[in-house]
Simulated scan of single mutants.
Amino acid sequence: MVEIKTPEQIAKMRAAGLVVAEMHRACAAAAVPGATTKDLDDIAAKVLADHGAKPNFLGYGGFPGNICTSVNDVVVHGIPDRDTVLKSGDIISIDAGAIVDGWHGDAALTVFVGEGHAPELHELSRVTEESLWAGIAAMRKGGRLVDISRAIETYLRRQRRAGGGRYGIVEDYGGHGIGSQMHMDPHLLNYVERRRGKGPKLVPGMCLAIEPMVSLGAPTTHVLSDDWTVKTDDGSWAAHWEHSVALTEEGPLVLTAVDGGRARLAELGVTAAPDPLA
Rank of each mutant, 00 (worst) to 15 (best):
L188N: 10
P200R: 00
A21L: 03
E130L: 12
N56T: 12
A108Q: 07
M213Q: 13
G116A: 01
P204Y: 00
M13W: 07
L132E: 10
D39H: 11
N190W: 02
S180K: 13
F112W: 03
G165S: 12
A151P: 11
A53Q: 09
P204W: 00
V19W: 05
A16M: 09
I152L: 04
D41Y: 04
L145C: 08
A107C: 03
G114Q: 03
I4F: 15
C207H: 06
H187E: 11
M206K: 06
R126E: 07
R160L: 09
V32T: 14
A98C: 06
C207L: 08
L202D: 09
I169Q: 10
V127T: 05
G52E: 10
S215I: 08
V75N: 02
A238M: 02
G135S: 06
A44E: 01
V192Y: 08
L86W: 07
A29S: 12
G114N: 06
A45L: 08
I91K: 01
T248I: 02
P274F: 10
R194Q: 11
I92P: 12
W133I: 11
A15W: 05
M182A: 11
I10G: 05
K38I: 07
M206L: 15
V100F: 04
E129L: 06
L189R: 14
D39Y: 05
L277A: 09
L189T: 11
L18T: 01
E250L: 02
A209W: 06
T36W: 04
A31H: 10
Q9H: 06
N190D: 14
R195S: 13
L216K: 13
G142W: 03
V254I: 10
P33Y: 00
H122C: 00
S236A: 15
D259K: 03
G143V: 05
D234C: 06
G89Y: 04
K201E: 15
F57K: 14
A30L: 09
D39E: 08
G177T: 13
T221Q: 06
A44K: 03
A28Y: 05
L268E: 11
G52F: 08
I148G: 10
I99W: 00
E22C: 08
M139N: 07
R264S: 04
G116S: 01
A272T: 07
V111G: 00
L202N: 10
L224T: 14
V203C: 07
G251A: 01
A98L: 09
A30E: 05
H104W: 05
L247N: 04
S215L: 03
M13Q: 14
R161V: 01
S149H: 06
L202V: 14
S93Y: 01
R166N: 13
A45Y: 02
M206T: 01
D90L: 01
R262G: 04
L58K: 13
G179M: 08
